[in-house]
Nucleic acid binder design. Sequence first.
DNA 1: CTTGACAGCTAATTCGAATTAGCCTATAAT
DNA 2: ATTATAGGCTAATTCGAATTAGCTGTCAAG
Lengths: 206, 206
Amino acid sequence: MDTKHRILDEALTLFSQKGYANVYVGEIAEKVGIKAPSLYKHYRNKQAIFDAIIEEMNKRYEEQAGALNINGMNPASDASLYENISEDRLVEIGTGLFLYFLHDDYTSRFRKILTIEQFHNKEFAALYSSQYVDGPFSYQKMLFKLMAAGGSFASADTDVMTLQFYSPIYLLLTLCDREPDREAEACKLLEKHFRQFGRIYGGRQK
Amino acid sequence: MDTKHRILDEALTLFSQKGYANVYVGEIAEKVGIKAPSLYKHYRNKQAIFDAIIEEMNKRYEEQAGALNINGMNPASDASLYENISEDRLVEIGTGLFLYFLHDDYTSRFRKILTIEQFHNKEFAALYSSQYVDGPFSYQKMLFKLMAAGGSFASADTDVMTLQFYSPIYLLLTLCDREPDREAEACKLLEKHFRQFGRIYGGRQK
DNA sequence: CTTGACAGCTAATTCGAATTAGCCTATAAT
DNA sequence: ATTATAGGCTAATTCGAATTAGCTGTCAAG
């Protein structure tokens, strides 16, 4: 990784821990192993580093969205995958979603930045909601509709079902962001949640 | 309200919007209607204002905890209140919890501060978790145990039940903190959640 | 009345962090 | 071999925000 990217990377880490205003350019430089003025050979100023993070984030987001479109976002193409679904599969989907969000290197740091900056930046607020509320909701909701159509799942109000399925993931995700030590506890609880959810709404799997 | 309290109040508002580092003492002063140097007649420095907020917060928290102890935290004393419970009562409890957290003047601003500062201050992280995860959990869990004992509720795994009951409240709370416009939407969804929850776990109410 | 303390003000002062200036070295292209 | 460029450094410089100095008016207690 070249210096320019290492700056981005260290800055991302620091911003995600302390927020933009609490990070000094000298601090970023130190982590990278250079002196503060040398940063300016790579970025016009501190703000430009932050902007580059956002841009990188948008790039990755679009890639990810593209990937999702191929497999999962197109109801017509892969309905069969979800029509009949086992409890284990449900656990797998949910845990996968959780662990991806929690551990993805870039995503997890960026989420913390969004968390910190959400209240004084409308764009970040909107981004947060779309990434961690509305996005997962519409995705899960679609899955539940498919499952209900396949008959393996109750066709209850999908909004509520989705809320009940996803909210625990969200709560435990924010918990683990705050206290990473509690990941094991969270995973155990989460699995119990998925299984119970499957028992409640599931139709015919054993 | 005297100047000293108005400083606290305006500072609390500003800190909850932008975080400590992004707020200038001149800004606080301006909101109060005085000049920055005059602040120093009331507080030794900027940090002292912040500390006073924390202290005030602790004071209120203890009062609140005291209040809860009288009515709700003592399983023996008011078990009868919860043994038999209707679906409407469940909606009432849940919505009450939600709206209290969301709107309480002091609580809601302080929660935003915790949100912003949680990643670079262990104490805040712990406080956040105790206030918005572990606290509500143990409280709700106790209620569910009482209800199960009373026979009006399924005696499923109470950890999971509690998670499933509370997580949506939490998710929608953080959503409304971020986007207050969505309160109505959140309330509607929440009520549906409570009713469905009641239908799932409730025993004999109509 | 007068005095002292309270709460405000304007005008410094301090201080630290961001940024700029200007120099140096390595290296890759001509 | 020469030179231009990239990327690093140290030593200024700038600038803005926090804090301090020191003055002033008000008002309650004596």
